Computed example of a mutant assay.
Amino acid sequence: MQFGIFTVGDVTTDPTTGTTVSENERIKQTVALAQLAEQVGLDVFATGEHHNPPFAAPANPTVLLAHVAARIERLVLSTSTTLITTNDPVRLAEDYAYLQHLADGRIDLMMGRGNTGPVYPWFGKDIRDGIPLAVENYALLRRLWTEENVTWEGKYRSPLQSFTSTPRPLDGIAPFVWHGSIRSPEIAEQAAYYGDGFFHNNIFWPMSHTKQMVSLYRRRFAHYGHGSADQAIVGLGGQVFMRANSQDAVREFRPYFDNAPVYGHGPSMEDFTRETPLTVGSPQQVIERYAAMADSVGDYQRQLFLIDHAGLPHKTAMEQVELLGTQVVPELRKIAAARKPAHVPDAPTHASRLAAAVSATHEDADLEVTR
């Protein structure tokens, strides 16, 4: 099972000091978080895509991820949102294949529609077309990665005639895609249809909703013949804040929660932690809470944590990464490994998918010899 962190890159005033980091500071801090994630043994670093304040997340995540790729050796780099609705599939095909080469294959994407309404008209799109855009654009993106000469015509962009996207995917293996959705069953269906991963970023939703969405994806994954329902590729999001003493964690995090631009001034922290995966407490409480997620959704392949939001000081965010890597994730790995059936796959990587492709080629060759 893969464990990692993701960032939304918000530039938020620290409610306890009144200070706000600059965009430059926030960007450099994000790189430091990724480097520390590798140092403490995490598996994945992911970044979102934003085009508006108060976010300093990259408008084009390939820029940040290429920069990080030059500074790490093992970490899988991912987007936590690539806007499949407002980005041109041709540009996505080219940019992420190029990044794949730079990162020696350690790159995947999480496709999403985006939850910021104004983004659509900024790029000449209509939010009411969100689902059809996601469906059409992704269908084209897949063809651009798997076919060398693409002739295509759709509704939302100009036609293509014998177009070849360059560079071609590394080793002929396109980046693995997770379809991220919070509430859209059509996206779960899309992930199942292609046999791709489904990532439910359930940071604002009760587990009952997450269970419903993941169950739909699993059923449809099996329906399309990609394997049994429990072999579907599932990822979850989460939020944690930890201190050795749970009372200290609650006391320290409360002002950040209460004033956060996303969920502040709404439900109490107690209500939010009860209804969503947000866990504020000791490392042991985080271990127990997240070990139980599989009881609702089944054995799954990727767990990402949001730990650097709401104006938390950089030093505090780095401490959270350290706690994840040294105290929480090692225990979660043991628990996940002990309960996972042998037929449930690990999270796909470039290396595992390349090995599978080579094995399939050899099997086909052996079959031809015996005919």
Rank of each mutant, 00 (worst) to 15 (best):
P121Q: 06
A191S: 10
R254Y: 13
S162P: 07
L83K: 02
G112T: 07
L324R: 01
D258I: 07
V214A: 12
R128H: 14
P341Y: 11
P121A: 02
I27W: 08
I131W: 01
P175I: 00
A249Y: 05
L278Y: 00
V250Y: 09
Y120E: 08
H309F: 03
V280N: 03
V44S: 02
A139N: 14
D126K: 13
V344T: 08
E25L: 06
F257E: 09
R251H: 14
H314D: 09
T13K: 08
F55L: 04
H101R: 08
D364C: 07
D308H: 09
R26I: 01
G117E: 15
L304T: 05
P118L: 03
S246K: 08
K125Y: 10
D10W: 01
T166P: 01
G238M: 10
L306Y: 01
T146V: 03
N137D: 11
E49R: 02
A46E: 01
E25C: 04
V328I: 11
P313D: 10
D366G: 15
F257R: 05
K125G: 00
K334S: 13
T86L: 11
S162M: 09
E319D: 15
T7K: 01
V31P: 04
G9Y: 00
S184C: 02
Y98C: 13
G266K: 11
M318E: 14
M269C: 09
V297I: 11
G235M: 11
L332N: 04
G105E: 08
T82N: 04
A292R: 14
L99S: 11
P53E: 05
P167A: 05
L83P: 00
S78A: 15
T164E: 14
G172I: 07
V369K: 10
Y138M: 14
F257S: 06
P185V: 14
F204G: 12
L75K: 06
R143L: 07
N115D: 15
S296D: 15
A336Q: 07
R74V: 12
V40S: 03
F253W: 13
D88P: 00
V119E: 13
D196K: 04
F199D: 03
T16Y: 08
S78H: 12
T279N: 11
D108M: 08
S359D: 15
N52G: 05
F163N: 05
L323K: 04
L354V: 10
R254L: 15
M269P: 03
T316G: 03
I203Q: 13
T361V: 04
A310S: 15
N60M: 09
T7N: 11
Q100F: 02
V262P: 00
G112L: 07
N52R: 13
N87K: 12
A57L: 03
R26E: 12
E38Q: 06
T79H: 02
V328M: 01
V90Q: 06
K125F: 11
Q301M: 05
L92H: 06
